[in-house]
Design a protein around this nucleic acid. Structure first.
Lengths: 256, 256
DNA sequence: TACCGCTTGTGAACGCTTGCACAAAGTCGG
DNA sequence: CCGACTTTGTGCAAGCGTTCACAAGCGGTA
């Protein structure tokens, strides 16, 4: 049931090197993984990395699910998308799981990152230790302000936005991060795309127009705030309304 | 069909003040709005605000959907969750729509924000203009380092984390932002919760444990990167695999 | 070797979300 | 005043993701 797409695919299974599992299987599976599951796999990986450091060698779905804040059935299903690497009656080997998730997420290759827009956020991103430590070295910084170019930020030189194509090609940038003001975002995006960057993380509060082959993820801090605001308002309304019943929605008592 | 929950609810409809629509209806509707729709409403609001500045007074679902990057049917359904405020044959009055979305999202009240952890990211957040301009004034900053306390950042004084309860109460903080290293995040979270903060935006790469009545949203930059990495890998695999058919998955030609 | 208890992996049901298609409802031109 | 045209609002069906529940499989033990 897992791989319904393409039983007759054109992938040639190399006869040698197929000791434990076939690369073609990994490839087929990667396509069937739901978007939501991919996001969770990244979380599992983070938790598991912490486990490795603590010297944990084996973990059950129940434990891992608890640490990752999800249902254990969901965790097992998520892991089943990438194959069966657990041992019934025992659990999962932590290191094996880490290496398989890393492979599925494509973390065996380095992904160089370019940050465009060296304002407050750009500075923070350039200095953020979480990227290099997880396999995403910041390889290039760009800004339109000539006063900023040349001066390194976090040890990385800032280049002018006009040099984006050559610099990105040179340093093999595969992910572009847009941290510019909203007015500039679309233009920067277009330049990144024409520089060959196919994955973009957008912090600017605008909807970017890109070709189909480009993947965009957006992080809009104000939207996150507004979603929280909605919940505040909803809660306040419940307090004014349903609390006459003594209990809020979902059986949760307000301020227990 | 809309409000299936609680036909016999204890909400008293105030007889006066019920000119155009009843407040109780707004309250009932807010609960029925799907989470995904709430996130999109925030996006619509942003687009609409831009329209107002451009002097646009009326907009059709088709236009707005295009600008927000969604299907027009989905947009109409999202708007129907908050009521019928469009005119058939014409479209939506931009200002009316803006004010209704603002009301639903609870943006009629100010939501003061506290940022904890004045490192790179905390600095950027304190200086970020996007918060105050959209009704989320940063009212307090906290750090554990005594060298930082007292020195204002972005015009806001930095207080010591130990004063979090009194300062939050004093300045009516309703949203806490965690921008600390991962090791400190859970402790900070606990302190925010005991200070009465019920909404938290977490930038630290850890899964926070909170009581049921607290709403947490997380932004994990490394996870975003890894999701992009997954798509890079998938694309590379397709290039090695399915492209023998000439066309990638979904009929999209790789690098057209 | 055979049994027992534990945990995985997954078929199946459920619920939420999306997209379609069309009736209802309003405007505009004659 | 009427008819044609435009656009909203929504019932309905399809798709996707989540959850449940349990058979299958493995290690430990006698």
């Amino acid at each position: 049931m897992a791989a319904q797409r393409g039983e007759g695919d054109g992938v040639v299974t190399r006869p040698g090197e197929t000791g434990t599992e076939a690369p073609a299987d990994v490839r087929e599976r990667a396509r069937a993984i739901p978007e939501a599951a991919v996001a969770r796999l990244a979380v599992y990986l983070r938790v598991l990395s912490g486990m490795v450091e603590q010297g944990v060698t084996t973990i059950s779905s129940e434990e891992l699910a608890g640490a990752a804040g999800v249902n254990s059935a969901k965790l097992r299903k998520d892991l089943s998308y990438i194959g069966s690497y657990g041992t019934r009656g025992v659990g999962y080997d932590v290191e094996v799981l880490v290496s398989h998730i890393e492979r599925i997420l494509g973390l065996t290759r380095k992904h160089s990152v370019a940050v465009v827009g060296i304002g407050n956020l750009g500075h923070a991103l350039a200095n953020y230790g979480g990227f290099p430590s997880r396999g995403f070295p910041v390889a290039a910084l760009f800004d339109i302000d000539p006063d900023l170019t040349g001066v390194p930020v976090g040890g990385i030189p800032v280049d002018h936005i006009d040099d984006i194509t050559t610099v990105c090609a040179e340093r093999e940038v595969s992910i572009g991060v847009i941290a510019t003001p909203p007015q500039a975002a679309q233009a920067v995006c277009d330049r990144l795309v024409s520089a060959g960057v196919q994955c973009i993380l957008n912090f600017a509060p605008v909807v970017l127009q890109v070709p189909d082959y480009v993947e965009v993820r957006k992080v809009d801090l104000a939207v996150e705030m507004q979603i929280l605001s909605f919940h505040v308002a909803r809660r306040a309304d419940e307090a004014a309304g349903d609390v006459v019943n003594g209990i809020g929605v979902d059986g949760v008592v307000i301020r227990p």
